[in-house]
């Protein structure tokens, strides 16, 4: 139980320093490794701006690899944070960021977009975003009347909406015969290969304030873990706090998903991983999930790019292939 010996400030400092280093290292690796072979000298020159702007490696690093690594980081942070928040909000360890219908809605939107032959950005992304927002609205409308069993009905209607959407997705997949099917499958597995520089910066402008907002709600999240009644007695306006958290989180998850597809596993397991390592305090877990979840997806995306495959492997395949054994190892060690 060594994790309880450190004070909150010490743990926070450790998480920010170690997590920051890990994220910086992952991003650096993401910039330096890829399918274009080049020595480390040329990389160093390109990174420091020593070679001219016409240099092909400079372009690859700054216009292709960096935006993609940054997008992977943002998506990883968002999904991990989303899972963390939903697990606390619904008091359910199996909750993931897609649980309230986000995955189903965005997938239907994205597949319709791909079917119509739209460009990945903004066309498909926009449709995916609209799809997830409308399913979310639907879930909230269904549960608007319920008061007592709110969490149960939220969860159940999310699962039902997702189930309905999967049926629609299966139907759409079954009637698609050409090369678009490949793109659809990649989208469903989670795929970062479509990223563009402006896309990453737009995403960052929306996501970073959301991260800050959730960071400020760390204490309310801790109180919600104690149950609604106790949270209220400790001065939390439970209804308002839950609503704000629900809306912010769903918004940022929808935004991440509409550009990356359904990257699985990250949102479910990264929060559990840090809970095992750091304990249940959200004031530590939120920064840990932001930095650690981001690094995790950057590294997984890197693996998906450099591992030999027909073209590229979808990053969603790598996350679970690498993550599940890692998590089981930590779980067994903690006993």
């Amino acid at each position: 139980m060594s994790r309880f010996k450190l004070s909150l400030r010490q743990r926070l400092l450790g998480v920010v320093i170690l997590g920051g280093l890990l994220l910086a290292l992952s991003l650096a690796l993401g910039m330096c490794l890829g399918s274009t072979p080049a020595g480390w000298r040329r990389h160093l020159a390109a990174l420091l701006g020593g070679s001219g702007p016409e240099d092909i490696l400079t372009t690859i690093i700054w216009r292709l690899r960096l935006p993609r690594a940054l997008l992977a980081g943002l998506v990883g942070s968002t999904l991990s944070l989303g899972g963390l928040v939903f697990q606390a909000l619904l008091r359910n360890p199996l909750a993931d960021p897609y649980i309230l219908g986000v995955s189903g809605g965005s997938a239907v939107g994205a597949i319709l977009g791909l079917l119509a032959g739209l460009a990945p950005f903004p066309g498909v992304a926009l449709l995916a975003f609209l799809g997830s927002m409308s399913t979310l609205l639907l879930v909230l409308l269904i549960t608007a009347g319920a008061s007592g069993a709110r969490k149960g009905s939220l969860l159940l209607s999310g699962v039902m909406v997702n189930a309905f959407c999967s049926a629609v997705i299966m139907f759409l997949l079954s009637i698609t015969r050409d090369a678009r099917l490949h793109n659809m499958l990649y989208w469903l597995m989670g795929d970062l290969s479509m990223s563009a520089p402006d896309q990453t910066s737009i995403t960052a402008y929306v996501l970073l304030p959301c991260f800050l907002a959730v960071l400020c709600l760390a204490r309310p999240l801790n109180l919600l873990l104690l149950g609604e009644e106790t949270a209220r007695y400790l001065g939390l306006n439970v209804a308002a706090a839950s609503r704000v958290l629900l809306i912010i989180t769903s918004l940022m998850v929808s935004l991440a998903v509409c550009q990356s597809g359904l990257v699985g596993f990250v949102g479910l397991v990264v929060p559990h991983l840090f809970r095992l390592l750091l304990g249940p305090d959200h004031r530590v877990l939120i920064p840990a999930c932001l930095l650690g979840g981001g690094s995790f997806l950057v590294l997984c995306d890197l693996l998906s790019r450099v591992l030999p495959a027909q073209g590229e492997m979808p990053v969603g395949v790598v996350t679970a292939l690498v993550g599940a054994p890692l998590f089981i190892f930590l779980l067994m060690r903690s006993r």
Binding site: F4, L223, L226, L234, G235, G279, D281
Partner: peptide, 15 residues
């Protein structure tokens, strides 16, 4: 939830 005792008591400072 495995909060340590001190953290639990400190939650009383929430308001």
């Amino acid at each position: 939830i495995p909060f340590p005792v001190q953290e639990t008591v400190l939650m009383g400072r929430s308001p």
